[in-house]
């Protein structure tokens, strides 16, 4: 059996080649579904290491994005063994960049980390109108809605989205987190969100707290 600590460490070190070599060897050995699930969990722990290193200022956003790429490649290798890579789902989330803003990166980082933490994430994409959030919330009944934006203008769109969710009678059933460079405590209050962050790892910890 594969040394799971080495898997976790390789992902934490962003050592793609080493990780994929180990996984290819593992797949070739004909593992059981249970063993494969343990490897997925080890990869998820590796993503936690990446998040910790980011919080300590050792890793940067580029490292976070690359860790998501490595995780995707690793899960693609394991998927044939277990059919689907989803472990136990800890919660459901709808995420999107709000109307008028085409920035994708922050949302993508948050999505990668939330998925690695066991959330099922429905990504609406960029430049999403209020109606898109409302429709998706009605459809999937998530625990959390995440709104992302980089432009100062996005704060208004976030406020409009929260208002829209209120008017649709959906606000009380969900928690809302907002993220992006213009977001502050004061903006969070004005917008009517439950939490704000400019740090994906911190944000994921917050939403974990909501569903635990």
């Amino acid at each position: 059996m594969l040394d799971l600590k080495k898997i976790t460490q390789a992902l934490g070190d962003l050592d793609e080649k080493n990780l994929l070599d180990m996984l290819n060897e593992f797949i070739a050995s004909g593992p059981t579904v249970e063993e494969a699930r343990e490897v997925v969990a080890a990869c998820q722990e590796g993503m936690t290491l990446v998040g910790d290193l980011y919080e300590k200022g050792i890793y940067f956003v580029g490292d976070l994005i690359f860790s998501g790429e490595i995780l995707t490649a690793a899960l693609a290798l394991i998927k044939p063994v277990i059919g689907a890579v989803n472990g136990p789902k800890v919660g459901t989330m709808v995420i999107g960049t709000v109307q008028g803003d085409l920035h994708d990166m922050g949302k993508q980082i948050f999505k990668n980390m939330a998925e690695a933490a066991g959330f099922e994430v429905f990504d609406l994409g960029i430049d999403q109108p209020v109606s898109a959030f409302i429709e998706k919330v009605k459809e999937v009944n998530p625990d959390v809605v995440g709104m992302s934006g980089v432009l100062t203008l996005s704060l208004d769109s976030m406020k409009d989205t929260v208002e829209g969710l209120k008017e649709a009678g959906l606000r009380d059933d969900i928690k809302i987190i907002i993220g992006g460079s213009p977001v502050t405590e004061a903006a969070c209050k004005r917008i009517g969100a439950d939490a704000w962050t400019i740090n994906a790892a911190e944000g994921v910890r917050m939403i974990q707290g909501w569903v635990s």
Partner: peptide
């Protein structure tokens, strides 16, 4: 784009 260039920088 971003994912592409940061992956290239690593690989």
């Amino acid at each position: 784009e971003f994912t592409g260039i940061v992956s290239d920088i690593k690989r």
